[in-house]
Write a protein that binds this DNA or RNA. Structure first.
Lengths: 231, 231
DNA sequence: AAAGGTAGGTGTACGGCGTACACTTGTCAA
DNA sequence: TTGACAAGTGTACGCCGTACACCTACCTTT
């Protein structure tokens, strides 16, 4: 009784527990509202306790990325580089979709963790195994860019979503000012009767872009690409 | 004398002056260290004075994006959609390169400003003028993603830069753990004698990816693409 | 059993942030 | 002359990340 104090002994913190809780919190309320203090509160602990397990908030974010990237199913498929890469990227997308904040965080990390490096390494390996030259692989990885994580490039489609809550007057004014944007926004979900649907099929758009890239890679590879002229 | 106080009359603030100063400050020391207080100090004014010209920090960032996007040379070239788009995107890249923080900020804006909408509208217009169907244009814009702003996808190349300051031992260990990554990193600047060069030619990588996309668009357009099967 | 190191959790405090709100002040129209 | 209005000020609040000194429970060594 004197020994055990008045509270039940907490399961002790650990880096892993801290990171998992952080991921959950970010999933629930967005990474921008994740703070060391809230995270500590969630874990029933004083804020400074976290610093015994992560050096600072940056390292916390690094660790969160590792947790996510570690979730990606890395099981090989083994029927040609193209379908292997495709499958891998779609698997990544599956995970990343469940953690919408991860896109921004991954892109903001300047130093790659071992987990991230390993992911990239195995993806490079897929192209190499398909017979791509080192140079071509290099450029191809650049061309993939963040699509290699399964990210959709969000830059475009929000405008469509936004129109859903805009007055007809406003909508009309916009149609005059940005005719092309509106035309596309209207068309985005034309099998729906409402003025503007809830945006477009993200999965389709993603695969469209991914396949476009992969087909391009294939074509270059087949015609024995070498860095023509340049350097 | 009594009228004029002891200080020279300041040129008054204006939305424009606030935004320009913010852009300069972000250029100099990065957008992450830009604060309302520092910006106010830079302008010789008390922080709250800024709020007479921008509603809050979010709107400040919106405005900064507008300043940058407004700088993009929008002059038409008029020899086919492909070279027009190419030229436009490279012009955007030219501007964005001078404001490295803009990438992150543009991507983090959820509501597009008129300036941004107009930029997108005119780009869509280029594809339309080239005879692209509305649907194809839509998908093509998604596939362009943030590359439409001239952004390089940074996800990949930093690892190369980082290796420059790593001990030989460390480097050797990494080569064992991430053989593919290292192979590419080593090759990235092979005409340089140092172990690892200062990374790769970003401009080349960007154009490589851009042309890959544009060629893909062209191919789809020529073969009269329609959204096969899907929806 | 005593001593002492160590890992994990605590409490306090500091400087920075965005911004609400009430205020002064300078300018110009009526 | 008045008095409305736009521009700038001052104070204050509640958040944030985290430095630093501290306690405390446990483990190892003797």
């Amino acid at each position: 009784m004197a020994q055990q104090r008045e509270t039940v002994r907490r399961t002790p913190l650990s880096r892993k527990r801290v990171l998992s809780a952080a991921v959950v919190l970010a999933d629930e309320s967005g990474v921008e509202s994740l703070s060391m203090r809230k995270l500590a509160q969630e874990l029933g602990v004083v804020p400074m306790a976290l610093y015994k397990h992560v050096a600072n908030k940056e390292e916390l974010l690094d660790g969160m990325v590792d947790v996510i990237v570690g979730e990606i199913d890395t099981g090989a498929s083994g029927e040609g580089w193209k379908s292997a890469v495709r499958q891998r990227v779609l698997a990544a997308r599956q995970i990343l979709l469940r953690h919408p904040w991860a896109r921004r965080v991954i892109e903001s990390r300047t130093n790659k963790s071992p987990v991230v490096l390993e992911y990239m390494d195995s993806m490079i390996g897929m192209f190499q195994a398909g017979g791509f030259s080192v140079d071509l692989t290099h450029h191809v990885m650049h061309a993939m860019g963040s699509r290699m994580w399964g990210f959709t490039q969000e830059v475009f489609d929000d405008s469509a979503n936004a129109t859903a809550e805009i007055s007809p007057t406003m909508l009309h004014a916009m149609a005059e000012k940005y005719p092309h944007v509106m035309e596309i926004a209207m068309r985005a979900d034309h099998d729906d009767d409402s003025v503007v649907g809830q945006g477009c099929d993200d999965q389709f758009e993603f695969e469209f872009a991914l396949d476009l890239l992969l087909d391009g890679f294939e074509r270059l590879h087949e015609q024995g690409w070498t860095s023509t002229g340049r350097r």
